[in-house]
Simulated assay, not measured.
Amino acid sequence: MDCPHCETALVTFAVPPEYQEHLPGSESAAGLCPRCLSLEPVEESAGEPAFDRLSDGFPTTREAALPLALLVGLLSNLALYRSEIATLLEAVERAGTDPLLVLDRLDRDPEVETDIDLSGRRRQLEQLL
């Protein structure tokens, strides 16, 4: 499936039950665009997610990558998803990944072309931690 915003192939993944409530919509899977970082609900995932397609700085372990992908996808509306983002931040940290460092890396990645002010969001997330 391609991103409806920039037509880049989404990285799709099944969302486990513990994260379903953090996903907009009622679908059981999601896709994150490696270019614009848009999170899109999808009907189903196409096998094992290729989190390494998202960015060199993105974790590849499912335990860290999955909540981080959801978190990044929700950043465009921090006010609406504040509690979900806080929960996902904790999950990423428990998995042994620094989510703020990943945001720094995404912000410097020349292949990421997002409308989200990642450095601004990073400062706001520091306050949530």
Score class of each variant (00 low, 15 high):
L71A: 12
L71W: 09
C6P: 01
E27N: 12
D104M: 11
C33N: 01
L78F: 00
D52C: 02
L74A: 07
A9W: 07
L71C: 14
E43R: 15
A65F: 05
N77C: 11
G57A: 13
S76Q: 13
V72M: 09
V15W: 01
E21L: 15
S76H: 13
D2E: 14
G57W: 10
G47Q: 03
Y19C: 08
P49H: 03
M1E: 13
L66A: 05
A65D: 05
L32N: 04
L23M: 05
P49F: 03
L80Q: 11
E21K: 14
T60N: 12
F13D: 04
C3I: 14
T97S: 13
R122N: 10
V72G: 04
C6S: 08
P16H: 05
L88S: 03
G31Y: 02
L54G: 05
V102S: 07
A91G: 05
C33H: 02
L23W: 02
S76W: 12
Q127T: 06
R53W: 06
E126V: 00
D56A: 15
Q127N: 02
S119F: 08
P16F: 04
A9T: 12
P67F: 06
G57Y: 08
L32H: 03
T97I: 13
L128H: 00
E43L: 15
A30W: 01
A79P: 00
L37M: 03
S38W: 10
F13L: 06
A95R: 05
E93R: 14
S55K: 06
R62M: 14
L39M: 03
E90T: 14
S28L: 08
D117K: 08
R53I: 04
Y81I: 03
P24I: 06
S26Y: 00
E40W: 06
E93L: 07
V42T: 10
D109F: 15
L125R: 06
L125T: 08
T60F: 10
A86L: 11
R94I: 01
V11A: 07
Y81A: 02
R108H: 14
A86T: 13
T8S: 08
G57F: 10
P59W: 07
L78D: 00
V11I: 15
V112L: 07
D117Q: 11
G47W: 03
L125H: 06
T114V: 12
L88V: 05
D107L: 13
F13N: 05
V102L: 08
S83I: 03
V15E: 01
G120I: 07
T114W: 07
L54E: 07
F13I: 09
E84P: 01
L103V: 05
C36V: 11
L118H: 09
D107P: 09
D109E: 15
S38C: 12
R35I: 10
L32W: 02
V42D: 04
G47M: 02
D115C: 15
